[in-house]
Amino acid sequence: MHDLKRSKKKMYKKQMPAMINSYNEESTVEIEDLERGCKNKTNINNSNNACNCAGNQSTNQNNNNNQKHDCHHDHHDHHEHHDYDEFECVCECKKSNNHCEPCEAESDTCVANPCAGDQCCNGITPTYSSKNASPVAIEAQRIYDAIKFQMFTDATGPNGETLYFDYDVVEIEGRIPVTGLANVTVDEVCMNYSSIEVVPGIPSIEDFQVMEVEDNAPCDTVFEYAVCPEKNATCCARNRGQSVSYKERGLTVIVNNLVLELRCHCGCTKIRAFAYPAVQQMGGQLCRVDSVEFRYNTLAARMCIPSNGRSLTLRQNYQTSLTVDCISKAYISAQDCCGCDCDDCFELTIPSGIDLICCIEETVSILISDQVVVLAVSQGINPRVVDTFANVCSFPSCGQ
């Protein structure tokens, strides 16, 4: 739009000297050419279709002098005192209501915004076949065994205390009965929190030594331990692994700054409320807390580890998800607020409370460092080229 306006400014500057020099001879033709966007240039007293552009609403005063000032003011009488840069576009009159249509840009060239498309993508899918593959020796961590735990538990206070919720009604769209209790249906519960912290329990594998590896994992939900098992001669002679007992005690998940948003309705009235986690103090008064905890029972399962006594890595990877159990009944009632008609004067009550649940999925893997031979494509992966400088720079395969 700005390029279009600058173009029209230049057009007026270019045409203006020619119009001024030839005004005495061809004033009528030049002005009508410049003001071709306005039609029916008649006196405002003689026609209802007179063109009066925005910014120059002419009045009935001096009609004989103003009848030529339809769109661009008095170009011929005051050209020495006007800055013609202000006339950015030619107005077109609309006869129905005697005003000018806004200027519109016309372009045949349009491009799509690259960031407005789908945000999903596909990873690299290499082409593989036995014809273009060859054996390659590598050293890597190999997965020897893996198990997965799936469980859930209810929320508690910071020290394992019973958890309650303190409710605040923040928005009501419609009418609520001013007396008695009104039934409320909770439609949605939205989770708002600042962080979810996974505190892993203390893992153990039989009587073997398990040592935590410091600064080993890039994510807050991944934990690794070094394990030094003993050799099992019987299983090793049979070229098999040994079965051991894996246990984890004390797994805890902490959710910080949790607030639940309850989206409800009472008939046709929409209600929105906040539920803050709290614990009960002496006298039954609720005290809000900054975090809630989810404490899990001991996890136990059998796992297979190498029987030759070689060291291994124990990896724990966690995935968490917050949800709530069924909220069957809720009520809203009006409170005495000294005649104030506001949302704070209503109280939301959920007799059975809210059962906040954290579902957790833990994958426990036994990793061993091994030298293995794999089938691989010698050319490797072909990454997508982002820059086109390869047309100028050459990168030989031999490094010369």
Rank of each mutant, 00 (worst) to 15 (best):
Thr156His: 08
His82Arg: 14
Gly267His: 08
Ser7Lys: 14
Ile44His: 03
Cys393Glu: 09
Gln280Tyr: 01
Ala300Val: 05
Cys51His: 06
Gln316Cys: 14
Ala376Pro: 00
Lys14Trp: 07
Arg310Pro: 00
Glu173Met: 06
His2Ser: 12
Gly174His: 06
Ala233Cys: 04
Ser130Tyr: 11
Lys9Arg: 15
Asp343Leu: 01
Ala54Arg: 09
Ser134Asn: 12
Asn192Tyr: 10
Cys393Leu: 14
Glu106Ile: 08
Asp108Glu: 11
Leu367Arg: 05
Gly160Glu: 03
Leu356Val: 04
Cys71Thr: 05
Tyr225Asp: 00
Arg315Gly: 04
Ala226Asn: 06
Ile332Phe: 02
Ala18Lys: 09
Met1Arg: 08
Glu106Gly: 13
Val324Asp: 00
Glu293Ser: 14
Ala116Val: 02
Ser194Glu: 15
Phe274Trp: 03
Thr234Trp: 07
Ala226Ser: 15
Ser307Pro: 04
Phe152Arg: 11
Val213Glu: 14
Gly241Val: 06
Gly123Cys: 06
Cys359Phe: 05
Gln209Met: 13
Gly157Leu: 10
Asn56Ile: 07
Cys340Phe: 05
Thr349Asn: 14
Arg249Cys: 05
Ser96Val: 11
Asn64Ala: 13
Glu362Pro: 01
Val136Lys: 15
Ile44Asn: 02
Ala105Leu: 09
Leu258Gln: 07
Thr320Arg: 03
Val178Tyr: 02
Cys268Thr: 10
Gln242Ala: 01
Val255Pro: 00
Asn317Phe: 08
Cys121Tyr: 15
Val324Lys: 06
Ser245Leu: 04
Val255His: 02
Phe274Cys: 03
Val377Pro: 00
Phe346Ala: 02
His72Gln: 08
Cys228Leu: 12
Gln319Asn: 15
Asn317Trp: 02
Phe87Gln: 03
Ala155Cys: 03
Thr323Ala: 11
Ala237Met: 12
Leu356Lys: 00
Val385Arg: 15
Glu188Tyr: 10
Cys120Val: 09
Asp118Glu: 13
Cys393Ile: 15
Asp341Asn: 12
Lys231Pro: 01
Thr320Asn: 12
Met211Lys: 13
Thr388Gln: 13
Val222Glu: 12
Gly117Val: 08
Asn60Phe: 12
Asp33Phe: 11
Gly55Cys: 03
Arg384Gly: 08
Glu261Tyr: 05
Lys8Glu: 10
Asp215Thr: 05
Glu173Leu: 10
Ser394Val: 09
Pro17Glu: 07
Arg36Met: 12
Cys287Arg: 11
His81Val: 13
Tyr318Ser: 13
His2Ala: 12
Cys342Arg: 08
Ala137Glu: 11
Ser243Leu: 02
Ile143Asn: 09
Lys247Phe: 01
Leu4Trp: 11
His79Tyr: 15
Cys393Phe: 14
Gly283Phe: 05
Val169Leu: 05
Ile368Met: 04
Glu88Asn: 07
Gln209Ser: 14
Ser397Ala: 15
Val222Ala: 07
Cys120Asp: 11
Ala146Thr: 11
Ser107Thr: 15
Ala112Ile: 10
Gln316Asn: 14
His82Leu: 13
Ile357Lys: 15
Asn239Val: 04
Pro200Ala: 06
His75Met: 13
Gly180Lys: 07
Ile381Gly: 00
Asn216Leu: 07
Gly37His: 10
Lys41Met: 05
Phe87Lys: 00
Ile366Ser: 00
Cys103Gly: 15
Gly117Cys: 06
